[in-house]
Each structure stands twice: as structure tokens, then as C-alpha cells.
Design a binder for these strands. Structure first.
Lengths: 205, 205
DNA sequence: TTGTCAACTGCACCGGCGGTGCGGTTCCGT
DNA sequence: ACGGAACCGCACCGCCGGTGCAGTTGACAA
């Protein structure tokens, strides 16, 4: 990591913390300068403008997101074999992980960008879209794998199923925030787990 | 309606349109003045500050939201009797209504407030919480009514079920925006319908 | 008819913020 | 010894949220 890269990361760290806490619009550049101890010129050396900061933030967010899901799925695959059980266990892990966050999920940058306080340019929208499609592909693959051995009880479109996972996660975060109750998100993830179970399992357990 | 009330509403109309299109932070007061033709002093005569504008916007949004759901449920109750069928039909109506919006759902003010571009004060948070609880009560009542005649296939908490409805709606809006595809939201509502069907119906249809 | 009050207008001004421009400095690798 | 990456310092701009205050208009009530 070059020295420039380190500074850039320090700015991104500070920015991420402030943005999830207060939103992008309410996070001023001056404030990030104060936290990181960098000068204004230094900031604009690394980022052309605030929008580019947002882009970098989202890119980093997706990378981290990928890493987390990979780890969660891998852990579940180590413990069970059946694709359906892998997915159900992953959702359980995810719910546990969300429940362990004392102040709840800090907020998803995709949703934050959608409710763009500032009108972002096309590149941010494309980034967002690509991220959402990444989720769709991931969960869609899982759906196909499960459906291979467990015929769904009712006709379900794979993409719709995949989007449902993302929707409940995004919606769960929103509802957790709105209700000011961090427990809502993990409980919603478990509801999603129930849905998956009902969709694929013949039994009533 | 007094003259003052009319002007206030005109401001709120303009504000609502701009806010769902660009976010709260990106909507300037000056811009609202230009659209409504009112003076800056006039604006601040009606609203102490921008936060109070947000509050008024959210209050109006909830009132409209209540009205819409009441109408949807009433229409469904007119057509079918069984509580489960009423709910399934309502979800169908809702999906159709969302599909009819040419540019998709413009965005929910609750989610917008949660991803508060500006840090809103406690009163806005309370308003948001009250709105989310309103949803919970409404859908919870529906759940209880259905569960009375249709024992769920698996143990489901009523509040979690109710929040699931809100979550999928909120998440569906986010995913629709992220994927830049208005069709995602209605499809997610139909997925939700599938979930409700699976949760309560013994048959596999 | 006069007074009163809600509902504004017009204008000057403030501080914060995003952003620009530019000249200088420090330090690291070659 | 030199060039370039990685900054610092500072002056300046325009927009925006917000304040303060004096003045105007029109409806309605005494």
C-alpha cells in the first residue's frame, strides 16, 4: 500500500462512518478534514469532487459485501451438504451476525444512493445497478442449485426469488431504522428463512 | 381551506415532487420559491425551517398512505369474504397499482428519512416510528384475522409477519430504484403474496 | 369607516459548504 | 541531484439555509 493509498483509505474510513451515521449530504468535507487531519487541498488531490468520494465509498462497500457473503456461504457449506440446508444455515448466520451488531446495521449504501440526497451522476447509478445485479446473480445461483434437488412447492421465478432476498435485507434495514429497533432486521431475515423453507420443503416443520 | 392553507399546500406539493425526484438535501428552498412563485419570507412564514417542511411532508404522506390502504382493503373485502383471500387480493391490487405507475414508485418518505441526508431532530424520528407502527398494527390485525380461520403451516410471529409486509415493500422500492426497473416492485409484492399463500394454505397451488 | 390581523413581499445580511486556483514544501525512489 | 507523488496554506467564488425587519394587501369584525 502506497502512502497515498493509505491516506485515501483514512479518508474513506472517516467518510463511511460519518455517512452511515448522518447521510451523505450531512457529511461535510471540512468535517472529514478535521477527523483525518488532512488539508482541503489534500482531499481534492485524492478525490476530484464529493461524488467521486461517494463512488469510492460504494465500490469499497461492494467489495466488503462480497467478502462477507463468500465467508458466510463457505462456513455453511463446511457444515452441511444439501444446498437448501446451506442456504438456510447461511440465513441463520446472517441473522446472528446482524443481531450481534449492538446498534444495528448502519445502513446500506445502495439504499442511500437510491434515496440520493444529492443527484448523483450516471456512473453512480451504474455502480448501484451493477451491485444489485451482483446480488441477484449470487442468490439466483443459490436458487437454481436448491431447485435442482428440491422442486419448489409452487412456481417461483429465480430472479424474483433472488431479488426477494435483497428486498427483505434492504427493507429490514429500513424498518429497523424506522422502528428504532435493531432486532427487526435479524427477525426479518429469519422470516425470509421461513419463506425459503416453506417454498422448498415438503414437511411442515 | 383558508388562503394560507392553500399556499402551504402548494409549497408541500412542489416540495414532495422535488424531494422524491432528487432527495431532500438536493431540494433547495430557493427552487421551491421559483416553482410556487412565493417569496422567501412567505416560505418561512409557513415553515420555521426546512426540517418542519420535512415533518409536514411526512405527515401528509402517512395520511395519504392510510387512505390508499383503506381503499385497497375495502375493494378486496367487497369482492371476497375469506380473510386470507381478502389479503391475497389486496396484495394483487397493490401489485397492479404499482405496475401502473409508469416511472415506478417515486420513493417512500420513511426510507428517505431513515437515510436522513440531514440529521433530522427527534420529532421526525418519532413521526417515522409512529408511521411504521401504524403499518405494523394494520398488517398484524390482518394476520390475526387470517390465522383465526387458517392455522399457519409453521409458527409465525404476528408482528414479524406484519413487518415482513412493510420490509418487502420498502425493499422492493429500493431494489426497483437500484435496478432501474419499475417492474421489480410489483413482482416483489407478488412474491410476498406467494409467501402469504405458502404460509397459510395447505394446498400446493 | 376604521382597525386588526393573517398572509404575505422586499431586501440586506450571515455563516457554512462545495469547489477552484495556485504557489509552495516534503520526501522517496532513481 | 532531480523529478514527481503527496501533500499544505491561503485566498476566493457562488449557492444555500436562515435571520431580521420594515412595509403591504386584503378580508373581516366592531
Amino acid at each position: 500500500m502506497t502512502k497515498g493509498g493509505e491516506t485515501r483509505n483514512r479518508i474513506l474510513d472517516a467518510a463511511h462512518e460519518a455517512v452511515v451515521a448522518k447521510g451523505f449530504g450531512a457529511t461535510s468535507i471540512d468535517e472529514l478534514l478535521a477527523v483525518t487531519g488532512i488539508s482541503k487541498s489534500g482531499f481534492f488531490y485524492h478525490f476530484r469532487d464529493k461524488t467521486e468520494l461517494a463512488k469510492a465509498l460504494i465500490e469499497r462497500y461492494f467489495a466488503e459485501d462480497e467478502r462477507i457473503y463468500d465467508a458466510l456461504f463457505a462456513r455453511a457449506r463446511d457444515l452441511v451438504d444439501d444446498p437448501l440446508q446451506v442456504f438456510l444455515l447461511t440465513l441463520r448466520f446472517l441473522a446472528d451476525a446482524m443481531a450481534d451488531l449492538p446498534r444495528g446495521h448502519p445502513g446500506c449504501l445502495v439504499a442511500l444512493s437510491c434515496y440520493h440526497e444529492r443527484q448523483f451522476d450516471a456512473s453512480v447509478r451504474d455502480l448501484n445497478r451493477e451491485g444489485a445485479l451482483m446480488w441477484r446473480r449470487r442468490f439466483r445461483a443459490m436458487f437454481d442449485e436448491i431447485a435442482g434437488s428440491h422442486p419448489p412447492r409452487t412456481a417461483i421465478d429465480g430472479d424474483d426469488f433472488a431479488d426477494m432476498i435483497s428486498s427483505v435485507l434492504e427493507g429490514g434495514i429500513v424498518m429497523s431504522k424506522a422502528l428504532e429497533d435493531p432486532a427487526v432486521l435479524p427477525r426479518q431475515i429469519l422470516m425470509l428463512r421461513t419463506f425459503v423453507r416453506l417454498a422448498f420443503q415438503a414437511g411442515t416443520t
